[in-house]
Structures are given as structure tokens and as C-alpha cells.
């Protein structure tokens, strides 16, 4: 009986999400030594070579049917004022993480998947709202294609504060 109770408590306590859960990587993922491998085609060869990829993606869900890991669920984050963001640093981060989809001032190859960010200051959105959109946009739109940078651990709280400071000051 104790055993079952303990089992119950454990299974309830096990995170409902998580990238880093104890579930193993699926056998059909291109992984070697626990690292993401990329295929390399060698001319006139019957073998496909594999080399470690520049980044490691093993901690996130794959398309494998054997993948038992869950997706991190939509998460709210209450941003405490003051914002205290560094807009110069935010600009650097935006050119790294956001520019693929959003048009930022000064970009000659504008992404058009997300909304254009020119004159963002004019909207006067409250900081916590913009923070939440970057932390996890699924809270506002469950079908959004915008990555949940906070929930998925791609950006830290200060990174997002810096991004908000940058956006809120785009004249």
C-alpha cells in the first residue's frame, strides 16, 4: 500500500511537460553520442555519412512516434515592473531571433510571417503584454506560429526585458 501511494505521488509530481524528462530519445532520431547528427552526402558512395550538427536539438520533441516526451504547455509569466531593459542589447537579440519573421527597421530582407515592427512605439502596448507575447504567445493565440521563447528556455527573463525595451522605443 505504501508502495502504491508513493507511486501515485511520484507520477503526479512528475512534470507534465518536459523537455528534460527522463524519457529516452527515440531510436529513429539521428543522434549519436547523445548529440544531433546531420546527414552528409558523399558523391559516388553508397554510404550516408553523419556529422555532429552545429547545434544540439536532442532536448526537444521530435516527429518520431516513439517519442514519449511532452511539449511544454502554454505558460503565463507575470513580469514585475520596472522593465529595466537594455534596448541596445534588445536590438542585437532581435536581429538574431526575431528578424526571420518580423520586419525590423533597417532590414533589407524583411520577414513577413509576423507583424512589421516599424514605429512599434506608437502602439503604446503595456510592457507586461509585450513581455508575455515574447515569453509565450500561445496565451493570446493558441494557433500562433511565434515560438514561445520564454517557456522553451530559448531566452532568459532579462533577454526578454531587453527586447521589450527595444521594441517599445522603435520610433
Amino acid at each position: 500500500m505504501r508502495f502504491f501511494l508513493a507511486g501515485l505521488a511520484l507520477s503526479l509530481a512528475a512534470p507534465a511537460c518536459c523537455a528534460e524528462s527522463a524519457q529516452p530519445l527515440p531510436a529513429d532520431a539521428s543522434v549519436s553520442g547523445g548529440k544531433t547528427m546531420a546527414p552528409q552526402v558523399i558523391v559516388n558512395s553508397g554510404r550516408l555519412e553523419w556529422a555532429p550538427y552545429k547545434r544540439d536539438y536532442t532536448r526537444w520533441l521530435t516527429l518520431s512516434y516513439q517519442d514519449r516526451r511532452a511539449t511544454p504547455e502554454p505558460t503565463r509569466f507575470e513580469m514585475k515592473a520596472p522593465l529595466a531593459g537594455d534596448k541596445a542589447r534588445g536590438k542585437k537579440l532581435a536581429w538574431e531571433w526575431c528578424i526571420a519573421c518580423h520586419t525590423l527597421p533597417g532590414d533589407e530582407w524583411p520577414g513577413t510571417v509576423g507583424s512589421p515592427m516599424a514605429h512599434y512605439k506608437q502602439f503604446k502596448h503595456p510592457d507586461p503584454l509585450v513581455f508575455q507575447q515574447i515569453f509565450d504567445a500561445r496565451i493570446f493565440n493558441p494557433n500562433t506560429v511565434m515560438p514561445a521563447f520564454g517557456t522553451f528556455g530559448l531566452l532568459a527573463e532579462q533577454d526578454i526585458r531587453d527586447l521589450v525595451a527595444y521594441l517599445q522605443n522603435i520610433e
Binding site: T36, A38, L48, R55, W60, T62
Partner: peptide, 28 residues
């Protein structure tokens, strides 16, 4: 890639979107 099969295109789209790819010929 020199010559890219459809399954290798899937690995490329996966890698480009920060997703761990699967092996060519896998059921998915």
C-alpha cells in the same frame, strides 16, 4: 547536398527549424 532525397529534405527542414531530425526511411 549534391543529391538530396525527399527524406533528406525533411531532415533539412527539421534542422533549419531547430527540430531533431529522424533517420531517412523511418516510418514517420
Amino acid at each position: 547536398y549534391m543529391l538530396q532525397s525527399l527524406h533528406l529534405r525533411f531532415t533539412e527542414c527539421n534542422l533549419d527549424t531547430r527540430t531533431q531530425p529522424l533517420l531517412p526511411g523511418s516510418q514517420p
